[in-house]
């Protein structure tokens, strides 16, 4: 079934001068609106056998001679659609800086040190209830070149495949209480305050492991599919 039209009032525009890099990388022509066809309503399917047992444990999946430095956290939540139904068996991928705000990436030259025991990426498939979880350390904030004194709030990048190519989404999760959120141009390309708040994960004490790891809860909502029986025909005879 085809997807509901994307609500662009909740999504960032392409051209957002407060985030300077967007200026030369955003289309000037309007996007051409397409009704869904098979090309948009279908998408890739993944299996649990494609993932390794430590893929959702960032504390262990790159550890060489000990645990990574930093606050041990669990991030968990559900992938839902606009109809409030779970999106099962979908690929969720995540990546982040280490506790000092440094990425394990050949193009990151920030002076904070690489953590030899931290890779900074992982992935999971949602279960039949749309639930996913992973363990990691809390990433640090870091400076970036936008204004001369711009700092990213601590964040974890998320990529979600969904069940159709039109649901494909990349976003970032922020942490409750971070004072840098309100200063960040990348956050504020989102034109809707409630939509920004939905990217901020609350501390979830009930989800925590006592004396071990604190939890944050982060739900993700993908576009919903129409379910009425009176459909335009998506394909031929």
């Amino acid at each position: 079934m085809e997807f509901y039209q994307r609500d662009r009032t909740l999504q960032p525009a392409g051209y957002t001068p407060i985030y300077k890099t967007s200026v030369a990388r955003s289309p000037r022509q309007s996007l051409l609106s397409l009704q869904g066809s098979l090309s948009e309503i279908t998408g890739p399917v993944f299996g649990q056998n494609e993932l390794g047992p430590l893929d959702n444990d960032l504390i262990r999946n790159y550890a060489k001679d000990g645990d990574p430095i930093g606050e041990r956290i669990i991030v968990h939540g559900r992938v839902l659609d606009e109809n409030n139904r779970p999106v099962p068996n979908t690929l969720v991928e995540f990546w982040q800086a280490n506790a000092g705000g440094r990425y394990r990436h050949k193009k990151d030259t920030y002076l904070a040190p690489i953590d030899p025991n931290f890779g900074g990426c992982g992935r999971a498939l949602t279960d039949e209830n749309g639930y996913y979880f992973f363990r990691t350390i809390k990433p640090g904030p870091y400076p970036w070149r936008n204004y001369v004194n711009s700092w990213r709030p601590a964040h974890i990048h998320f990529s979600v495949c969904g069940s159709g190519f039109a649901q494909r989404l990349i976003t970032q999760m922020y942490f409750e209480g971070d004072p840098l959120i309100k200063e960040c141009p990348i956050v504020h390309v989102i034109p809707d305050e409630d939509a920004i708040n939905r990217l901020i994960a609350p501390i979830d004490l009930k989800g925590s492991v006592p004396l071990d790891t604190i939890a944050y809860k982060f739900d993700i909502v993908l576009r919903g599919r129409r379910s009425t029986l009176f459909e335009n025909r998506l394909e031929g005879n």
Partner: peptide, 28 residues
Amino acid sequence: YLKETASQTAGPYVHIGLIPNQAGFDIF
């Protein structure tokens, strides 16, 4: 109805999460 989660840029280090070999390391 719920509202779709807002998109954010993939950023300069997208390789770490999606194609870590290009970021310069082997993990999966």
